[in-house]
Design a binder for these strands. Sequence first.
DNA 1: TTGCAGGGGTCAA
DNA 2: TTGACCCCTGCA
Length: 312
Amino acid sequence: MDHQLQTMQRELPDKGVDMDYKGYEIIEKDKSIVVKNLRDFHPVHVFDCGQCFRWIRQEDGSYTGVAKGRVVNAQYDEGVLVLNNSTLQDFIDIWYDYFDLGRDYSEIKTLLCKDDIMREAISYGHGIRLLRQDIWETLVSFIISANNMIPRIKKTVGVIASIYGDKVSYDGSDYHTFPPVEKLSDTSVEQLDVCRGGFRCKYIINSSMLAKTGEIDLKSLAGMKTGDARKELMRFPGVGPKVADCVLLYSGTKYDVFPTDVWVKRVMEELYFKREASFREIQEFAAAYFGELAGFAQQYLFFYARENRIGV
DNA sequence: TTGCAGGGGTCAA
DNA sequence: TTGACCCCTGCA
């Protein structure tokens, strides 16, 4: 652990540890981390806004998910986030970054509130945060998303993890981590067929080959210009412009993208263009109007459009 | 009960 | 620019 962090810790009377970490008050106790003073976070907005497929809503309203090789349960109420089954070290090493806790979403929302449409969309999805997910998992997940439905995407990703991932347990149940590149590149299309991914299975296997051999380096994308990173991603089979933008955005690699799927197209046509608009028109408008914050704008608009069935 | 449309797009012709 | 595409749910 970082020396500076240790010096800031205080032992609590009940054996817990209380510390300040980058503006948040953190309490570690009984394999749980309590994060206080967290604004701009709503579990439904974060986990059901379409960016992730491996967080499952529990009866008590909390979400249990597998990410970064860990299984955790997240519950939030009144500015307090509780991460169950996490250590302080994992919070610092993994979850702070994963939940994008270093970003001021209030400022982003203020900047994006430039018209009544965005005001309404942001008000509706005020607790959205963009997760910084593992890029390989995000790539495979969004290859699966093509011409598919969310419950089935979740199911397919879940089956892949259950067969090729490692088992991790929490609260009496078994979960599975998402398999690394090597695990899938050693698999055949026929073997992967059990995940019921259909025509997407061959894309996954072939993509895993390209990633394994280093023909395409996922780690290099962050250092590229957004347009180049997008082109590079589109070299993977099954990855077109929409999937590429989703991978860049939901892995926290690039934020000046505007993934345009049927829902985003509908909401843009219905509320901004007031007519049919091409994919290209929408992309150009978003780049000019939202600029560097296009990805955040897209997420507020997508959630608002899908939940309210805008344009259907 | 059966049949068919359609879904977080992409690919190939 | 246009169909086909795995699979499977929902609906007539």
